[in-house]
Design a protein around this nucleic acid. Structure first.
Length: 287
DNA sequence: AAGAGGCCCTGATAGC
DNA sequence: TGCTATCAGGGCCTCT
Protein backbone atom coordinates (compact mmCIF):
# COMPACT_ATOMS: atom_id res chain seq x y z
CA UNK A 1 0.00 0.00 0.00
CA UNK A 2 2.11 2.84 1.17
CA UNK A 3 5.09 5.03 0.57
CA UNK A 4 6.19 7.73 2.98
CA UNK A 5 3.24 10.11 2.31
CA UNK A 6 0.59 7.44 2.84
CA UNK A 7 2.29 6.23 6.02
CA UNK A 8 2.42 9.83 7.22
CA UNK A 9 -1.33 10.20 6.63
CA UNK A 10 -1.92 7.06 8.67
CA UNK A 11 0.41 8.38 11.38
CA UNK A 12 -1.39 11.70 11.63
CA UNK A 13 -4.82 10.19 12.07
CA UNK A 14 -3.53 7.47 14.39
CA UNK A 15 -1.79 10.01 16.56
CA UNK A 16 -4.96 12.05 16.74
CA UNK A 17 -7.12 9.09 17.70
CA UNK A 18 -5.02 6.96 20.03
CA UNK A 19 -2.45 9.28 21.60
CA UNK A 20 -2.87 9.26 25.37
CA UNK A 21 -5.10 6.21 25.33
CA UNK A 22 -4.58 2.97 27.23
CA UNK A 23 -4.31 -0.32 25.37
CA UNK A 24 -6.78 -2.58 27.14
CA UNK A 25 -6.41 -5.76 25.18
CA UNK A 26 -4.48 -7.15 22.22
CA UNK A 27 -5.64 -10.09 20.16
CA UNK A 28 -3.31 -11.64 17.59
CA UNK A 29 -5.47 -13.62 15.20
CA UNK A 30 -2.72 -14.61 12.80
CA UNK A 31 0.96 -14.31 13.69
CA UNK A 32 2.13 -14.95 10.15
CA UNK A 33 3.34 -11.69 8.71
CA UNK A 34 6.64 -10.97 6.99
CA UNK A 35 8.20 -11.74 10.34
CA UNK A 36 6.31 -13.71 12.96
CA UNK A 37 4.55 -11.40 15.38
CA UNK A 38 6.88 -11.54 18.41
CA UNK A 39 6.25 -13.94 21.28
CA UNK A 40 4.61 -12.07 24.17
CA UNK A 41 3.77 -9.22 21.81
CA UNK A 42 0.49 -8.79 23.67
CA UNK A 43 2.28 -8.47 27.02
CA UNK A 44 4.41 -5.58 25.78
CA UNK A 45 1.32 -3.62 24.76
CA UNK A 46 -1.47 -4.42 27.17
CA UNK A 47 -2.11 -1.84 29.90
CA UNK A 48 0.32 0.62 28.32
CA UNK A 49 -0.51 4.15 27.33
CA UNK A 50 0.29 5.31 23.79
CA UNK A 51 2.51 8.33 24.37
CA UNK A 52 2.86 9.36 20.74
CA UNK A 53 2.70 7.94 17.22
CA UNK A 54 5.76 8.83 15.18
CA UNK A 55 7.16 7.71 11.86
CA UNK A 56 10.52 7.15 10.26
CA UNK A 57 10.51 6.50 6.53
CA UNK A 58 7.71 3.97 5.95
CA UNK A 59 7.79 2.71 9.53
CA UNK A 60 5.19 3.72 12.12
CA UNK A 61 6.51 3.94 15.67
CA UNK A 62 4.11 3.68 18.58
CA UNK A 63 5.81 5.03 21.69
CA UNK A 64 4.46 3.31 24.79
CA UNK A 65 4.51 4.24 28.47
CA UNK A 66 6.80 1.30 29.31
CA UNK A 67 9.45 2.88 27.03
CA UNK A 68 8.94 0.19 24.40
CA UNK A 69 8.31 1.14 20.81
CA UNK A 70 5.97 -0.86 18.61
CA UNK A 71 7.09 -0.66 14.98
CA UNK A 72 4.45 -1.23 12.32
CA UNK A 73 5.33 -1.62 8.66
CA UNK A 74 2.44 -1.91 6.22
CA UNK A 75 4.34 -3.71 3.47
CA UNK A 76 2.41 -3.68 0.17
CA UNK A 77 -1.09 -4.39 1.37
CA UNK A 78 -1.28 -3.60 5.09
CA UNK A 79 -4.12 -1.38 6.28
CA UNK A 80 -5.08 -0.04 9.66
CA UNK A 81 -8.71 0.49 10.54
CA UNK A 82 -10.11 2.28 13.54
CA UNK A 83 -13.58 1.33 14.59
CA UNK A 84 -15.44 3.49 17.04
CA UNK A 85 -17.67 1.85 19.55
CA UNK A 86 -20.98 3.62 19.24
CA UNK A 87 -22.45 2.35 22.49
CA UNK A 88 -20.65 3.37 25.64
CA UNK A 89 -19.45 1.22 28.51
CA UNK A 90 -19.68 -2.07 26.69
CA UNK A 91 -16.32 -3.05 25.39
CA UNK A 92 -15.76 -6.60 26.44
CA UNK A 93 -17.34 -8.36 23.51
CA UNK A 94 -15.32 -8.38 20.29
CA UNK A 95 -18.34 -8.93 18.09
CA UNK A 96 -19.84 -5.78 19.49
CA UNK A 97 -17.81 -3.72 17.07
CA UNK A 98 -18.94 -3.35 13.52
CA UNK A 99 -17.89 -1.46 10.45
CA UNK A 100 -19.06 -1.93 6.86
CA UNK A 101 -15.60 -1.13 5.47
CA UNK A 102 -13.81 -3.59 7.68
CA UNK A 103 -12.47 -6.62 5.86
CA UNK A 104 -12.10 -9.70 7.98
CA UNK A 105 -10.42 -12.51 6.10
CA UNK A 106 -6.92 -11.14 6.57
CA UNK A 107 -7.25 -9.43 9.91
CA UNK A 108 -4.07 -10.18 11.83
CA UNK A 109 -4.09 -8.02 14.92
CA UNK A 110 -6.72 -6.24 16.98
CA UNK A 111 -5.84 -3.65 19.59
CA UNK A 112 -8.60 -2.54 21.93
CA UNK A 113 -8.85 0.88 23.52
CA UNK A 114 -11.77 2.23 25.44
CA UNK A 115 -14.57 2.61 22.90
CA UNK A 116 -12.12 2.11 20.04
CA UNK A 117 -10.69 -0.85 18.21
CA UNK A 118 -7.65 -0.82 15.95
CA UNK A 119 -7.53 -3.58 13.31
CA UNK A 120 -4.51 -4.49 11.22
CA UNK A 121 -5.38 -6.25 7.96
CA UNK A 122 -2.81 -7.53 5.46
CA UNK A 123 -3.68 -9.95 2.62
CA UNK A 124 -0.17 -10.28 1.23
CA UNK A 125 1.52 -10.40 4.64
CA UNK A 126 4.50 -8.30 3.65
CA UNK A 127 3.92 -6.02 6.61
CA UNK A 128 5.16 -6.68 10.13
CA UNK A 129 5.07 -5.69 13.79
CA UNK A 130 8.19 -5.41 15.92
CA UNK A 131 8.79 -4.56 19.54
CA UNK A 132 11.83 -2.41 20.31
CA UNK A 133 12.69 -2.14 23.97
CA UNK A 134 14.11 1.38 24.13
CA UNK A 135 15.02 4.46 22.16
CA UNK A 136 18.66 3.49 21.75
CA UNK A 137 17.68 0.21 20.11
CA UNK A 138 15.21 2.06 17.91
CA UNK A 139 17.96 4.25 16.53
CA UNK A 140 20.07 1.18 15.99
CA UNK A 141 17.18 -0.49 14.18
CA UNK A 142 17.15 2.29 11.59
CA UNK A 143 20.82 3.18 11.40
CA UNK A 144 21.43 1.40 8.11
CA UNK A 145 18.68 3.33 6.39
CA UNK A 146 19.52 6.41 4.38
CA UNK A 147 18.19 9.86 5.29
CA UNK A 148 14.59 10.78 4.61
CA UNK A 149 14.11 13.06 1.61
CA UNK A 150 13.15 15.89 3.98
CA UNK A 151 16.40 15.62 5.90
CA UNK A 152 19.06 18.28 5.32
CA UNK A 153 21.44 15.35 4.88
CA UNK A 154 19.65 14.53 1.64
CA UNK A 155 21.29 17.29 -0.37
CA UNK A 156 22.92 17.44 -3.78
CA UNK A 157 26.42 16.88 -2.37
CA UNK A 158 25.27 13.70 -0.64
CA UNK A 159 23.44 12.55 -3.75
CA UNK A 160 26.26 13.16 -6.19
CA UNK A 161 28.91 11.61 -3.98
CA UNK A 162 26.72 8.57 -3.40
CA UNK A 163 26.07 8.10 -7.12
CA UNK A 164 29.67 8.71 -8.13
CA UNK A 165 31.07 5.81 -10.17
CA UNK A 166 27.88 3.80 -9.71
CA UNK A 167 26.75 1.60 -12.61
CA UNK A 168 23.23 1.12 -11.36
CA UNK A 169 20.36 3.22 -12.76
CA UNK A 170 18.93 6.17 -10.87
CA UNK A 171 15.44 4.66 -10.54
CA UNK A 172 16.84 1.75 -8.53
CA UNK A 173 18.73 4.18 -6.31
CA UNK A 174 15.56 6.07 -5.47
CA UNK A 175 14.03 2.76 -4.38
CA UNK A 176 17.17 1.81 -2.43
CA UNK A 177 16.28 2.59 1.18
CA UNK A 178 19.97 2.68 2.11
CA UNK A 179 20.41 5.65 -0.19
CA UNK A 180 17.22 7.53 0.68
CA UNK A 181 14.41 6.11 2.75
CA UNK A 182 10.72 6.61 2.19
CA UNK A 183 10.47 6.80 -1.61
CA UNK A 184 8.66 3.94 -3.34
CA UNK A 185 7.69 2.93 -6.83
CA UNK A 186 5.10 5.62 -7.56
CA UNK A 187 7.00 8.64 -6.32
CA UNK A 188 10.31 7.48 -7.80
CA UNK A 189 8.80 7.74 -11.28
CA UNK A 190 7.15 11.07 -10.51
CA UNK A 191 10.36 12.55 -9.08
CA UNK A 192 12.38 11.53 -12.15
CA UNK A 193 9.75 12.94 -14.47
CA UNK A 194 9.75 16.26 -12.69
CA UNK A 195 13.55 16.25 -12.77
CA UNK A 196 13.59 15.41 -16.51
CA UNK A 197 15.84 12.42 -15.95
CA UNK A 198 15.34 9.04 -17.65
CA UNK A 199 14.90 6.28 -15.04
CA UNK A 200 17.57 4.01 -16.54
CA UNK A 201 20.29 6.65 -16.57
CA UNK A 202 23.29 5.34 -14.65
CA UNK A 203 24.13 6.99 -11.36
CA UNK A 204 27.59 7.98 -12.50
CA UNK A 205 26.25 10.00 -15.41
CA UNK A 206 24.05 12.33 -13.36
CA UNK A 207 25.26 15.91 -13.39
CA UNK A 208 25.47 18.07 -10.30
CA UNK A 209 22.43 19.97 -11.56
CA UNK A 210 20.44 16.78 -11.91
CA UNK A 211 21.38 15.77 -8.37
CA UNK A 212 20.11 19.13 -7.21
CA UNK A 213 16.83 18.56 -9.02
CA UNK A 214 16.42 15.20 -7.36
CA UNK A 215 17.00 16.79 -3.97
CA UNK A 216 14.44 19.54 -4.57
CA UNK A 217 11.82 17.47 -6.37
CA UNK A 218 11.88 14.59 -3.89
CA UNK A 219 11.00 16.96 -1.09
CA UNK A 220 8.47 18.77 -3.24
CA UNK A 221 6.55 15.72 -4.47
CA UNK A 222 6.40 13.98 -1.12
CA UNK A 223 5.29 17.12 0.71
CA UNK A 224 2.68 17.79 -1.93
CA UNK A 225 1.40 14.21 -1.65
CA UNK A 226 1.11 14.52 2.13
CA UNK A 227 -0.82 17.78 1.72
CA UNK A 228 -3.27 16.05 -0.59
CA UNK A 229 -3.84 13.12 1.76
CA UNK A 230 -1.59 10.64 -0.05
CA UNK A 231 -2.35 8.67 -3.20
CA UNK A 232 -5.42 6.47 -3.34
CA UNK A 233 -4.88 3.62 -5.74
CA UNK A 234 -6.34 0.19 -5.11
CA UNK A 235 -8.57 1.65 -2.44
CA UNK A 236 -6.01 3.24 -0.17
CA UNK A 237 -7.94 5.15 2.46
CA UNK A 238 -6.84 6.74 5.65
CA UNK A 239 -7.92 5.05 8.83
CA UNK A 240 -11.26 6.77 8.97
CA UNK A 241 -12.04 5.72 5.41
CA UNK A 242 -11.23 8.92 3.51
CA UNK A 243 -9.37 8.72 0.20
CA UNK A 244 -6.34 10.80 -0.70
CA UNK A 245 -6.12 12.92 -3.80
CA UNK A 246 -2.57 12.84 -5.04
CA UNK A 247 -3.28 10.17 -7.70
CA UNK A 248 -4.99 12.94 -9.66
CA UNK A 249 -1.59 14.63 -9.81
CA UNK A 250 0.29 11.67 -11.28
CA UNK A 251 2.21 12.85 -14.32
CA UNK A 252 3.53 9.46 -15.42
CA UNK A 253 2.55 6.67 -13.02
CA UNK A 254 -0.07 4.39 -14.63
CA UNK A 255 -0.24 6.70 -17.64
CA UNK A 256 1.35 4.36 -20.19
CA UNK A 257 0.46 5.33 -23.75
CA UNK A 258 -0.96 8.73 -22.79
CA UNK A 259 0.40 12.10 -23.81
CA UNK A 260 3.03 13.82 -21.70
CA UNK A 261 1.47 16.53 -19.55
CA UNK A 262 4.40 18.90 -19.88
CA UNK A 263 3.52 22.08 -21.78
CA UNK A 264 4.46 21.77 -25.44
CA UNK A 265 5.99 18.30 -25.03
CA UNK A 266 4.95 15.85 -27.74
CA UNK A 267 6.16 12.78 -25.89
CA UNK A 268 4.19 9.66 -24.94
CA UNK A 269 4.44 8.03 -21.53
CA UNK A 270 6.15 4.65 -21.64
CA UNK A 271 6.38 1.85 -19.15
CA UNK A 272 9.48 -0.30 -18.77
CA UNK A 273 10.52 -2.82 -16.17
CA UNK A 274 13.56 -1.81 -14.16
CA UNK A 275 14.68 -4.34 -11.54
CA UNK A 276 11.32 -6.04 -11.82
CA UNK A 277 9.31 -2.92 -10.99
CA UNK A 278 7.34 -0.82 -13.46
CA UNK A 279 8.85 2.51 -14.36
CA UNK A 280 6.87 5.21 -16.13
CA UNK A 281 8.53 8.03 -18.02
CA UNK A 282 8.16 10.42 -20.94
CA UNK A 283 10.19 9.19 -23.89
CA UNK A 284 10.77 12.76 -25.04
CA UNK A 285 11.40 15.23 -22.23
CA UNK A 286 13.30 12.98 -19.82
CA UNK A 287 16.96 12.83 -20.81
C1' DA B 1 31.55 -4.00 -2.66
C1' DA B 2 28.16 -3.51 -6.00
C1' DG B 3 24.60 -5.18 -8.73
C1' DA B 4 21.25 -8.63 -10.53
C1' DG B 5 17.61 -11.52 -9.47
C1' DG B 6 14.65 -14.35 -6.68
C1' DC B 7 11.52 -14.73 -3.09
C1' DC B 8 8.01 -13.93 0.47
C1' DC B 9 2.19 -13.79 -0.23
C1' DT B 10 -2.90 -13.03 -1.98
C1' DG B 11 -6.10 -10.87 -5.06
C1' DA B 12 -7.65 -8.34 -9.10
C1' DT B 13 -7.85 -8.26 -13.83
C1' DA B 14 -7.00 -9.56 -18.66
C1' DG B 15 -6.93 -12.89 -22.23
C1' DC B 16 -7.92 -17.21 -24.17
C1' DT C 1 -17.32 -20.61 -16.96
C1' DG C 2 -12.82 -21.57 -15.84
C1' DC C 3 -8.28 -21.98 -16.68
C1' DT C 4 -3.53 -19.26 -17.01
C1' DA C 5 -0.56 -15.32 -16.88
C1' DT C 6 0.63 -10.88 -15.23
C1' DC C 7 0.75 -7.32 -12.13
C1' DA C 8 0.55 -4.83 -7.53
C1' DG C 9 2.59 1.96 -2.81
C1' DG C 10 8.18 -3.33 -0.16
C1' DG C 11 12.26 -5.19 1.39
C1' DC C 12 15.27 -9.01 2.52
C1' DC C 13 18.40 -12.59 1.03
C1' DT C 14 21.74 -14.99 -1.92
C1' DC C 15 24.78 -15.42 -5.65
C1' DT C 16 28.36 -13.72 -8.68
Amino acid sequence: MPELPEVEIVRQSLNKKIKGKIIQKVIVKNRNLRFKVPIRFEDFLENQKVIKVKRFSKYLNLFLSNNCICIIHLGMSGTIHLIQNKKKNKITNVSFYHSPILPSKHNHIEIFFENLKLVYNDPRRFGFFEIIENLKLLNKRFDKLGPEPFSSKFNSNYISSFLKNKQKNIKSFLLDQNFVSGIGNIYASEILYLSKIKPFKKGKYLTKEECKKIEINSKKILLDAIKKGGSSIRNFKNIIGKEGNFQKNFKVYQREGLKCKRFNCRGIIERKNISNRSSFFCNFCQK
